[in-house]
């Protein structure tokens, strides 16, 4: 969306125009959901949190002055919400549900009924062990390191954008990214050791 169009929509949204806000936020919702899903490691929670981000952005759109880009501003709200959610859970690691784990039912533990993944490529990919291990490793990172690595490697933000989003100096962003990768290398050792 061209910047002048964004600015016009922002002005209308600040004045309380809900339709303008909808047009502004819609292109970002998919990316925000992906970010939150990777941050908290749970797709269902990610929908609730994405909803929270949208509602909070709507409430606060009047206070957005354009010092950062609209996308950066949304990521900042999303990061705050994700970190709060992780804190509320009372543990640093995100909950990761394995498709291989049995379900707790009234009659005891039963095997999950997983849909035919041959017809659903996304679920096939999600079900693969490697992807699950990578997600588990990301969930092992502290929220500070996790946010940086997800924003850079998955969301594709630049150092500068991450620095603005997390309100960190550029050097801190780089060092956190390096530390996050080093930690992931330890956690994923069987998959990366001796990589060619």
């Amino acid at each position: 969306m061209p910047s002048n169009q964004v600015e016009a929509l922002l002005q209308r949204a600040r004045a309380g125009d809900g339709e303008a806000f909808e047009q502004l936020i819609e292109p970002h919702v998919g990316r925000l959901y992906n970010y939150l899903a990777r941050m908290v490691g749970d797709p269902a929670d990610a929908e609730d949190l994405t909803q929270d981000v949208i509602l909070r952005a709507h409430r606060a759109i009047g206070s957005f002055r354009g010092g950062a880009t609209f996308q950066t501003w949304l990521y900042r709200i999303a990061t705050n919400i994700a970190v709060d959610a992780l804190r509320r859970r009372g543990r640093r690691n995100a909950r990761v549900t394995s498709l291989d784990d049995p379900l707790q039912a009234e009659q005891g533990l039963v095997a999950r009924e997983v849909r035919d993944t041959q017809r659903d490529p996304q679920r096939l990919a999600e079900a693969s062990e490697l992807i699950e291990q990578v997600q588990n490793a990301i969930a092992e990172l502290s929220p500070k390191l996790r946010a940086v690595v997800v924003l850079f490697d998955i969301q594709g933000l630049t150092y500068d954008e991450i620095a603005q989003t997390l309100r960190l100096p550029l050097g801190t962003v780089k060092s956190r990214l390096f530390n996050a990768r080093t930690r992931l290398r330890e956690l994923l050792e069987p998959y990366v050791a001796g990589a060619a």
């Binding site: 959901y33 992906n34 509602l55 490697d153 050791a193």
Partner: peptide
């Protein structure tokens, strides 16, 4: 080599999308 492999693994994660009914429901709440 190992750090580059880590990066490939992380960037290779599939992009997740919300359910199809999410956006209309979210906008209704807005």
């Amino acid at each position: 080599r190992e750090l580059e492999r880590v990066r490939r693994l992380v960037t290779g994660l599939p992009r997740l999308r919300p359910s199809s009914g999410f956006m209309p429901a979210a906008m209704a709440r807005v």
